[in-house]
Nucleic acid binder design. Structure first.
Lengths: 131, 131
DNA sequence: ATTACTGTACTAGCTCACTCATACAGTATG
DNA sequence: CATACTGTATGAGTGAGCTAGTACAGTAAT
C-alpha cells in the first residue's frame, strides 16, 4: 500500500480508499485479519491514530470488525459490501459527469461520446502507482 | 443562481460552477456584462469579496475579463472555452469512475452497465452517505 | 467636482480538519 | 503475574482555507 503525503487527499482517506479497493478486488478474504494499526502505521510512516481513524470509518461502514486485543478482521459481508460500494462509487462518478454535462447544455449524444473517450483513455487515470 | 450555504463546497466554488454552467449553456453571450460583484453579493447574501474571488478565478481561466470601473464581461472565447472545460470535466468524472471500477476489479462490461444506470438515474449523484 | 457606481488589495479572524503524543483498555502467551 | 501484542479514547497543536471588514482605485454620468 502506498500513500502520497503530498496529495491534497487526507492520509486516512487514502487508506480507506486503498482498503476499499483491496477488499473489492479480493485481496483480503472474509474473516482474514488486516494489518494491525501500529504495523500499518509503521509501514506508511504515519501516526497509528491516523490508521485508526481509517479503520474506524471502515468499521462504521461494516466492511471490517474490530476485536479488542485481537485485531481488525474482514467482516463476513465485507467483501461483498465493498464491491457494492465500489459499484455505487462508479455509478456516482458517472452520474456526476452526466449532471455536469447536462448543466452545461451538452446533449446526450455528446456526453456519450465523452464517455467513450474516457473508457479509451482510462489507462491515463491509473497514474496512482508512484515509485 | 442559487447557493447552498450548508454545503461543504465553498461558496466561491459554487459561484464558479454556476457561472461555468451558465456560460457553457449560453445564458451569457460574449461581451455581455455579468452581475457586478456587489450586486451578486447582495443577491446571494455573501460578502462581495467572496464573489470577487470567484470572478478572479474565472478571469484567470480566461472565461471573463474585468474592466475596472465598468464591470466584468464575458470574454470573446469565454463561451467556447467554458464548453471545452465542461466537456473536460465530464470526461474526467467518467475516467474517475472507470478508474475506481478497475481498481475494485470490476470488468469492463460491469462498468458499462453502471454507466447505463447512471444515465438513467442521474439524480443519484446527490448521495452522500459516506465521506 | 460630485456622486454613485464599478473592480481590487490588504488584512484579520475564524473555523475546521488532519495529524499526532500520550495514556488507557482488552487479549493471548509464557 | 509479566510481557507484548492488539484496539481505543482524549486532548493538543498546527496549518490551511474560507469569509468578511475596510480602504483604495478607476469610470461615467450629473
Amino acid at each position: 500500500m502506498r500513500i502520497d503525503a503530498n496529495s491534497h487527499v487526507p492520509i486516512f482517506q487514502q487508506i480507506i480508499a486503498a482498503v476499499h479497493g483491496a477488499l473489492a478486488a479480493g485481496v483480503f478474504k472474509p474473516a482474514e485479519p488486516l494489518p494491525s494499526v501500529r504495523a500499518l502505521a509503521l509501514e506508511l510512516a504515519v501516526n497509528p491514530n491516523t490508521v485508526q481513524r481509517a479503520y474506524q470509518e471502515l468499521e462504521r461502514q461494516g466492511l471490517i470488525a474490530a476485536r479488542r486485543g485481537r485485531g481488525m478482521f474482514v467482516s463476513e459481508r465485507g467483501v461483498k459490501s465493498a464491491r457494492t460500494r465500489a459499484e455505487a462509487a462508479v455509478q456516482g462518478a458517472f452520474a456526476q459527469g452526466v449532471a455536469i454535462g447536462q448543466n452545461a447544455g451538452l446533449d446526450g449524444e455528446r456526453i456519450h461520446a465523452l464517455y467513450r473517450q474516457a473508457t479509451g483513455d482510462c489507462a491515463a487515470s491509473l497514474r496512482e502507482d508512484d515509485s
